[in-house]
Nucleic acid binder design. Structure first.
Lengths: 117, 117
DNA sequence: CTGTATCCGCGGCGATACTG
DNA sequence: CAGTATCGCCGCGGATACAG
């Protein structure tokens, strides 16, 4: 690998992803939407400890990034569904890797405590 | 997939990874250490805009999580090297996915601007 | 039901000075 | 060179009230 590639500049893929998906909630929301489109109230139920403000705020951020699509059915009472865009669906391998890493990490923890650490 | 698996509880793999690797700097540091062990000063050079306080603080956090190993050579002047542990090395697929996603995202951006959006 | 508006605490993060 | 100590900003994120 090129030596120059080690230097981390302001514009670097990792930082880009961090800006798009960083923070406490975005990946959890995307994980939800990977299963199916959801209404706001359903998302709140599935992520019990998120506040309404943060949920809407993060959904808006994800829309503006082009990762999530907001579909307003224009009914009364209001009905709005959120779903992933094509590029939003591409966060799935990333989320899978996060899950895989967490499981490997917890397995490692168990091994260490078991071996009398 | 089981319907129950959609609910995101306080203990969930995604949150675990978020706690271990969340924040502005940890993944950038791990990416550095993936290439080779580094001294503190070298890390600072390769991540130009990190403050010394944050670098040390995040390195300490990564040590406590068991992802990074601190090796003190006990010389004068001081010489300390940081390197990944076995489990720390397992963050690599995750980082690779972050890079892959950022590239796909930027490609998507270019396509959209090109097609007269 | 789907949002907006407002207030605010806390902690992430940075800047600077200092030490062994 | 590799840290520690201290101070302070500011923005993330939470609570609550209100609106269409």
């Amino acid at each position: 690998m090129d030596k120059e590639a080690i230097l981390i500049t302001a514009r670097c893929p990792i930082r880009t992803t961090l800006e798009l998906l960083g923070g406490k909630w975005k990946l959890l929301i995307l994980f939800q939407l990977h299963h199916a489109p959801f209404r706001l109230s359903a998302l709140r139920k599935n992520i019990p400890d998120i506040s309404e403000k943060m949920l809407i705020q993060e959904l808006k951020s994800l829309q503006e990034s082009g990762l999530v699509l907001r579909q307003n059915f224009g009914e009364v009472p209001p009905r709005v569904e959120y779903q992933l865009t094509a590029i939003g669906r591409q966060t799935m391998p990333l989320i899978e890797q996060m899950r895989a890493f967490a499981l490997a990490y917890e397995e490692e923890l168990r091994r260490n405590t078991a071996s009398g650490q």
